[in-house]
Design a protein around this nucleic acid. Sequence first.
RNA 1: CGGGGUGUAGCGCAGUUUGGUAGCGCGCAGCGUUCGGGACGCUGAGGCCGGAGGUUCAAGUCCUCUCACCCCGACCA
Length: 566
Amino acid sequence: MRISQLFGKTQREIPAEAETVSHQLLLRTGMIYQVSAGVYSYLPLAWRVLKKIENIIREEMDAAGGQELMMPVLQPLELWQETGRDRAFGKGLFTLCDRRDRSLCLGPTHEEVITRLVSQYVRSYRDLPRLLYQIQTKFRDEPRPRAGLLRLREFTMKDLYSFDTDEAGLSQSYDKMLKAYQNIYARCGLPTLVVEADSGAIGGKDSHEFMVITENGEDEIIYCPGCQYVANADKAQSIKSKVDSEQPLPLEEVATPGATTIEKLSNFLRIAPNRTLKAVFYTADGEIIFAVIRGDLEINEVKLKNALRCFELHIATEAEVTGAGIVAGYASPVGTRNIKTVVDDSVTPGVNFVAGANKPDTHIRNVNYPRDFKADITTDIAKTHAGEGCPKCGSKLLSTHGIEVGHIFKLGTFLSEKLGAFFTDPEGASHPVIMGCYGIGLGRLLAAAIEQNHDDKGIIWPVSIAPYHIYLCPLYLDSPEVVATAEKLYKELETEGLEVLFDDRQESPGVKFNDADLLGIPIRVTISPRTLKKDSAEVKKRSEKESQLVPLENLAERLKGLAGAE
RNA sequence: CGGGGUGUAGCGCAGUUUGGUAGCGCGCAGCGUUCGGGACGCUGAGGCCGGAGGUUCAAGUCCUCUCACCCCGACCA
């Protein structure tokens, strides 16, 4: 490709819109153009990269036994109502009406469609297992699209769905995908970490995420230096510090004017925060919920949401709280009736906690579970922080950040049951098909690759996903010899199957070199009167500082080796 | 949805306080001199000042309403 003909231009200045490195570089290189929040056009360079990523994914899916198919973006809302997941996605679902006033949605994913499809064609255990996948545009009305391609409303995703007869089969499918995913990231030049994850709106049990570790990633990862434990902070558990048990003492009111926070309360009463109870109100699908946790801990809303099995959860508004007859700042589980209460397991050992009294400026001492209050649910709803003890080995946990570039789930049977995907076993009995699903966002992968591979000059593409292999860079185009050599080499290299970006522009060396670095093409080949004196070209890898002179004679061969080798 | 911010040429910005002919740098076009890490000179093109309504002799600037985008929080590939 001749740069003079290429659609798209590099930009010298950093667009004000962009804060993330990948976003800045994608804009500066002229690879993407924003159409609307979280919606982009992909220019030729970006599209080439995306197609390469897509092909790597396709090859690995096929190698793992996947069969590619295609399903629609436009889906009847009814299908989503059948599984109830229209509510799970909530406002994230793009919905619309057709001319007959039928409700449709733009598919945020395709489990419903494929499960219905499978229900039609899978009848017997002989039809299983199956691994089906598609690479398709998906739509999610994200509350906040951001960081260029890292969080989009319209994005391309590869989704594979597995269908098995039993748990062992599901585990096999799951492992196959886990390995296939590791191959994909390795081939894309992206080191990733496999992390235990929460399954969110997709639902299901086991779930892992693939994380690219970068300090500015939006996910927090908790990991253990002592063992193999790694988990998303939303999911991570830890050993909660212990507070010595005591003999339960009788309840006792105490005046605590102005002590509306745990900090003020513990200062006022001169007790450690872990001897107090923190009470937080939430509204879960419209119902007021009471969450109780030890004062030194915080509530993890993802865990709380899972415990409640609700669709929508937010901290209760003041109106919602007072409407339920509760005094904010002095709320207490003691004596609270008719409100569903979720209690963190840190609270259950009795240690004479201080809790609110449900009246202004008053707390109660010596509150103990279950003597003084009841819990509808007792489980772990605490945020896990670095520094706490690893749940597996007890070492101190550490934390880092990452970008989620893939997510795999064991779904089980809830979708197949609801959508009627059953098979008959050898004994003639009917069972729901056991499902798994496995997703990778292509744009996100591309952005993560840039986050991971760049310097202050620009992108440093891994060869496997680079838009071109070679940046052919002739200097001094007023020299006929330079032009002739470059033109000849351009044809030669392309004949050899190398992908060449030919900088045929009449620009100064500085401009060309800077663009070469910005665009991050793995190998730069410079031709100038200086190199021609030695019948050579200068070859420089983007990833290395040093260049070398290579004789023109077998240059094509040498370059082929370089491009293939990485 | 809550909080913060920004909309003026393709990009980065000034101008808004105090209303009075819309500016700068980069980029773009032409000519010339240059040329191994974003060269220089001259000439030129390019603007519904995000949109609507209002105040005024006069609005980029003042008032009202609105829209879009970015950033921080709750969601996710």
